[in-house]
Design a protein around this nucleic acid. Structure first.
Lengths: 260, 260
DNA sequence: CAGCGGTCCGTACGACGTACAGGGGAGGCT
DNA sequence: AGCCTCCCCTGTACGTCGTACGGACCGCTG
């Protein structure tokens, strides 16, 4: 008992996969390439990893490890949430591929849970209602994820423009026939104005990123308005429980367990 | 001139692809399956669509079409932004697969531009500084995307739990050896409390969704604080221009075009 | 009539995820 | 010692994917 067996092997495999993804993009991560990287036969990784799907899940959790804030966490709730948000953003930006892949059967893994633990700890000190605490954490997470995802797409747009630049003239007037027609027809006047009325450069510019901070601060401002008037205190154990179906089931099961 | 050729064929192909994705998931969308759906040979769709990558881009733009708000747009900026945000969320939720796929070379397509046009129109009436307007739109977009992406992942977690339920006992004690060990060792006390201390059910519950509205309203609250004190008026054409590299280049090019 | 551009088809190739049937070595039994 | 069992590793093989390519057909214009 307590042998913790495959763990270190898994960790090596995942680390190799992350290394490949960082260096060559996530498309380069195939089981064969991964096995090569590890110096083993093609099928060997399957001894430690259930499927490629699980590998993806583990790779994403490896990124989640970098979202964990080093202690001590700031006392001020706003500063603490901001720090976590930035740390999360940095992790995504360091491994942008993690936004391009999704596991078909994701599970709660250790590093994501550690991340949750940290966040919940902040809410517990805040003493807001459970639902409010949940909503605060999730809204911030959502914003961060969305920001990183959109920024990632923006980067890809720039990359593909850059690639087409080399082909010179071709890129000028090959936006998309529908778009060109719409611009010509006077639909999209604002877009047209914004991107320049002549087809200089790509007929649409990729708008500059307006940054991470403004949205985050607005969100925190809005939250502060709510938190300013705190409701009754909470039992931490209630923090993530609520009133959807699964949750009711879990609550019921737990109650039964307690009474038996 | 003005023959608008392949458009309708492309539209049919994309519509078929969307139909398959809605009914059977994106993984079912292969070029062979798509060709079957259309009653043509495997390679025929390639006559109208450059690659599968472009198909993905077009499929996502098809979803973007559903983000467009029917006129008239509310006069109140806050109500208008809220309406667009909800419409966007609804579109993603109607086609959740669009969050699972990414085109490697995305381009600005007609429906996304129409969506941008609508959003920008609201900002123009607001008369905030260009950078502010951009930041407002992007922060809301980011939040919506993040919310939908996270909700999507949550759904998949529930699905896979449901699938494992059928396998009865197996699902109870097979969370992830690392997670089990951490819970046992007293790391993650809050997570443990939240999810029930015994391994009844999965040792972690999937927390209930706290909903779309709270975060959106907080964000709007924060924005309202900024908008309340408007800066100098703007020229709409400047709205999406700013100070990153690409943008400076575009601005310069436009200035040259104007002075010549 | 020939030529040509656009649409459609069939075959074929390389890469992918992974099922499956073995091989070999370490540890616990008799 | 001999044997059995379990685990880690391996090689081959199958089905599916995206798509390159060469050719067939069809309605133009010359």
């Amino acid at each position: 008992m307590g042998d913790e067996p495959t763990t270190c092997r898994r960790a090596e495999i995942v680390a190799a996969a992350v290394r490949i993804a960082d260096a060559e993009g996530v498309d380069a991560v195939s089981m064969r390439r991964l096995a090569d990287e590890l110096g083993v036969a093609t099928m060997t990784p399957y001894t430690h990893v259930e499927s490629k799907d699980e590998l993806i899940d583990l790779m994403r959790d490896a990124v989640a490890a970098e979202m964990i804030l080093p202690e001590p966490i700031p006392d001020d709730w706003r500063e603490a949430l901001r720090a976590i948000a930035h740390k999360t953003k940095d992790a995504f930006e360091a491994h942008p591929w993690s936004l391009d892949i999704t596991s078909r059967r994701p599970r709660a893994r250790i590093n994501r849970l550690r991340h949750v633990e940290q966040s919940v700890a902040i809410m517990v000190r805040l003493e807001v209602a459970p639902q409010t605490g949940r909503a605060i954490l999730m809204s911030i997470d959502d914003y961060v994820i969305g920001y990183c995802a959109r920024k990632r797409m923006r980067q890809r747009m720039l990359d593909s423009l850059g690639a087409e630049d080399k082909e010179a003239l071709h890129s000028f007037r090959d936006p998309d026939p529908e778009v060109a027609a719409a611009l010509e027809a006077g639909e999209l006047p604002l877009v047209k104005k914004i991107t320049g009325h002549r087809h200089r450069k790509h007929p649409f510019g990729v708008p500059p990123d307006s940054g991470f901070e403004p949205g985050l601060e607005w969100l925190l401002d809005g939250i502060e308005k709510t938190v300013g008037a705190p409701s009754e205190g909470i039992e931490p154990g209630e923090l993530l429980t609520g009133h959807d179906e699964l949750d009711q089931r879990l609550t019921r099961i737990r109650a039964e367990a307690r009474s038996s």
